[in-house]
Each structure stands twice: as structure tokens, then as C-alpha cells.
Design a protein around this nucleic acid. Structure first.
Length: 331
DNA sequence: TAGGCCATCTGGTCCT
DNA sequence: AGGACCAGATGGCCTA
């Protein structure tokens, strides 16, 4: 009985129907992403290889002069097998997408509990992981020593191994004291503090929201959570909560992040600076699963930070997240 | 335009 | 057999 082998031409036709164009694949979001993919992306290569192997097999059968391949002989790629293979691949791709989306969601959750969170200027994956490592390390130090770290050293700890831009971002986010003072000089004040910012022991300056185009809501969020370490002393926190009503905080606690930093920062208030960040306190609601309560900026601005801290910027070789994770957590 | 980052596809490996 | 996980490859997007 003659089997129906897939001819090269048929292969190309099959291949030219990209897997993501198959009906019923993926959500709208996925499609958005998938629409970016070039036609016949991916499948072409592998199926072309299969095609090659078919040809080789056919040649082997015909002349038998070539050295025979070791191992189990590959089954003929009949059209039916090809279809099954294709369907399997489509399913596997969908699973892989889902898996990666889950991974990215987890990373997003991690970003949200970092000391500096920005919706618009997201930390890259690797920077998120590095910052997380540093954050854990810094918090461990706090627990161990029982002392709230001095601003500069805390920022140094957080920024260790981070890229310069990320270091600037983190340091900038933690510049609450000096920043607010400076902001009051340059920025138009906007007494917005309507809800959500529960900073039990925080003693920060009056909220200052810059006028557009400097200020962006939901731009940079700082995880400002109630200090856990009441017993560790007031440090830079003072004891006067801001004049705004706040929902009770029930989420995971982190140490005080209101570091009265003593590192220098430049700020000229002009909008055309090469690095400009606007800031906003960020405070998770009790409903952790849904993210955070919307926080109103109490200060924001266009700032330029020249952080004189010794940030060792060793760029890790790009070996994929898995390898990077190993690097990160085995350092 | 180069480089960084990212999403996706893919084949391999391991496990159930 | 099929799913999870992984790493390499690839190409798009963005920014300096």
C-alpha cells in the first residue's frame, strides 16, 4: 500500500499557515502579541528540517549507499503524522505561552512589592530579580542588626549589581525627605492626598503634585509600607501620619523606606532633563490579590539624580533567565 | 544603527 | 503519550 508522503510543496503550504493563525488559539492579548510575529515564524525551520529528513530517508531507501543512520529509524512523515505533529506543536506552543505569561505575572507581582514600582517604566526582568535579591538582603540586615539602615547604605545595598539607570531610579524613589524639600522649592504644590496612602509612621512633607507635563499619575510608585520595626526606633520616620485617610494595611510588611538620604542629588526642575522621574507613593491595599489601592501622589517631580554611591555595575552575561537566576542567587 | 529587552517558537529532557 | 520545564534561536520594538 503506497503511503502518502508529504511532498516539499505541500510542506511549504502547511508551513505557510502559521500556528497562531489557527482558529481558537489564544486570547485577545495573545493575539495582539502574536500579530507581531512574522508569517510562518518558527514552524518553517523545524518542518523544513523534517522535510530534509524525509528526503534523506527517501534517498537512503533508494540508493542505500550512504552510511545508515544509527538509532531507531525515523518514522515516515506521512501527511497524517505531520498533521498530528502540527497539532501537538500548536498545543505545546499555547502551553508554553501560558506558562511564560504566568512567569511574567509572577514577575509583575514581584515588581509591585519592590521598593520602587513603576507601571510605565517597568524594571526589566533581570533588574527586578536583582533588586529583589538586594531587597531581601537589605531587609535581612535590618532584622539582624535591629537597626534601620542609614539612607545611603540602604540605597547602596539595594543598588548593588543593578544597572545605573535602575540604581538611579531606586535611589530616586527613596529620596523622600530631600526630594520633597526640594520639590517644594520648585514644584507647584498640589495638596492631593485623598486616600490609600497609609503611612502610619511616616512623616513626610506636604504632598506636592507637579503640574503636567512633569507629573504623571501612576508613573513611579514607591512601596511605602508601614514600618514593621517600631521597636527599632523611629529613625527617620517620626510619628505623624499624613493628613489623609487610609485603609488599614494588612499586607506583608516591609521595613521603613523613608530614608532620609544624605546622598547628593541634582535637581533643576527643568523638564528637558535626560533622566526625569515623577514619583508617587505606593501602598498595597488589604486586597493583595488585586494589586494595590490607588495611591495619590504626595510628591512628584522632574528630577535628576546623580547618585554618588558606589554602585558596582557588572553587567551579567545574557544567558537566559534561568542561568541568570542561578547567577543571582548563588552569588 | 547597535544593543538591550522581550515574546514566541522549537526541540530536548524529565516526569507522571 | 503528554505535560512541564528549559535553553537556544529568532525577530520586533525601543532607546541612546
Amino acid at each position: 500500500m503506497a503511503k502518502t508522503y508529504v511532498k516539499p510543496k505541500e510542506m511549504i503550504e502547511l508551513v505557510n499557515t502559521p500556528s497562531w493563525m489557527d482558529k481558537g488559539l489564544g486570547s485577545q492579548n495573545e493575539m495582539k502579541e502574536e500579530e507581531r510575529r512574522p508569517a510562518a515564524y518558527g514552524m518553517l525551520g523545524s518542518l523544513a528540517e523534517e522535510h530534509d529528513s524525509i528526503e534523506e530517508e527517501e534517498e537512503e531507501e533508494e540508493d542505500g549507499e550512504k552510511p545508515k543512520r544509527r538509532g531507531p529509524k525515523k518514522k515516515k512523515m506521512t501527511k497524517a503524522r505531520l498533521e498530528r505533529f502540527k497539532a501537538r506543536r500548536v498545543k505545546a506552543n499555547a502551553r508554553e505561552r501560558t506558562r511564560m505569561h504566568g512567569l511574567n505575572d509572577a514577575l509583575d507581582n514581584l515588581r509591585r512589592v519592590m521598593p520602587c514600582y513603576s507601571k510605565t517604566q517597568k524594571l526589566s526582568k533581570i533588574e527586578t530579580l536583582r533588586l529583589a535579591r538586594n531587597y531581601i538582603w537589605a531587609l535581612s540586615e535590618v532584622l539582624e542588626t535591629g537597626q534601620t539602615p542609614e539612607g545611603k547604605s540602604f540605597v547602596e545595598m539595594l543598588c548593588k549589581g543593578l544597572s545605573q539607570p535602575t540604581s538611579n531610579l531606586v535611589a530616586g524613589c527613596l529620596q523622600l525627605g530631600p526630594q520633597s524639600v526640594l520639590l517644594e522649592k520648585h514644584e507647584e504644590k498640589s495638596p492631593v492626598c485623598d486616600s490609600a496612602i497609609s503611612v502610619h509612621n511616616f512623616n513626610y512633607q506636604s504632598p506636592g503634585l507637579p503640574s503636567p507635563p512633569y507629573g504623571h499619575m501612576e508613573t513611579h510608585l514607591i512601596n511605602l509600607k508601614p514600618p514593621v520595626f517600631k521597636s527599632l526606633g523611629e529613625s527617620s520616620f517620626g510619628s505623624h501620619p499624613p493628613d489623609c485617610s487610609t485603609p488599614p494595611y494588612e499586607g506583608p510588611l516591609t521595613p521603613p523606606l523613608s530614608i532620609s538620604g544624605n546622598f547628593s542629588l541634582k535637581q533643576d526642575g527643568s523638564p528637558d532633563l535626560d533622566k526625569s522621574y515623577s514619583f508617587m507613593p505606593h501602598y498595597p491595599s488589604a486586597n493583595l490579590s488585586s494589586g494595590h489601592v490607588h495611591a495619590t501622589p504626595f510628591q512628584a517631580g522632574t528630577l535628576r539624580y546623580d547618585i554618588p554611591i558606589d554602585v558596582s555595575y557588572d553587567s551579567y552575561p545574557h544567558h537566559g533567565i534561568g542561568a541568570q537566576l542561578n547567577t543571582i542567587f548563588t552569588e
